[in-house]
């Protein structure tokens, strides 16, 4: 073999053959740095192969699983939040009950005394009401009215 022919075989400067690009759906993949890209890297909009029911079911199954896993986190959060509020409420009740119990232990429970206090309070109110009633005031003497007038003005001015 001559050196001249060898050099022609090794360093081929022109493309060996013209490829027909009609076999590819990829319009940019005909030639890449001088080499052909035979594989069709773009997925066609319609590949012509129908998915089987089993494949569809499996896809849907994966979607369901993903949705369930996503929602489980939020459900867990809401449950834990509610549980915390329930626990707080329980703690508050417990504290209030214990305070009430402590107060009940400290305070003497005397219903008769309480009743007496209520009755006395009511008597005072009725007495005050009758003291300042119009009929009672009309029967009062002037010095009494004078003193009462000044007392009530002082109370009003002091804002008691």
């Amino acid at each position: 073999m001559e050196i001249k022919n060898i050099s022609k075989k090794i360093f081929r400067t022109t493309p060996s053959k013209v490829e027909n690009s009609s076999n590819h759906t990829n319009p940019f993949g005909v030639n890449f740095k001088g080499n052909m890209i035979n594989a069709d890297v773009f997925e066609p909009a319609f590949c012509g192969v129908k998915e089987t029911i089993a494949q569809k079911a499996s896809k849907k199954g994966r979607m369901w699983a993903s949705a369930i896993v996503g929602s489980m986190n939020s459900v867990n959060e809401s449950i834990s939040r509610r549980m915390n509020s329930v626990v707080d409420f329980g703690n508050r009740i417990k504290t209030n009950v214990s305070d009430l119990w402590n107060q009940a232990n400290v305070k003497e429970f005397s219903p008769m005394q309480d009743m007496k206090n209520i009755i006395n309070n009511m008597k005072e109110r009725i007495s005050e009401r009758s003291t300042y009633s119009r009929t009672n005031l009309l029967n009062r003497v002037i010095p009494d009215l004078d003193a009462m007038f000044q007392d009530q003005i002082t109370i009003k001015l002091l804002g008691v």
Binding site: Y132, S133, R134, L137, L138, R140, I142, L145, F149, I153
Partner: peptide, 9 residues
């Protein structure tokens, strides 16, 4: 009370 006292006076 004040009103009643003034009224009485």
């Amino acid at each position: 009370k004040l009103s009643n006292i003034i009224d009485a006076l």
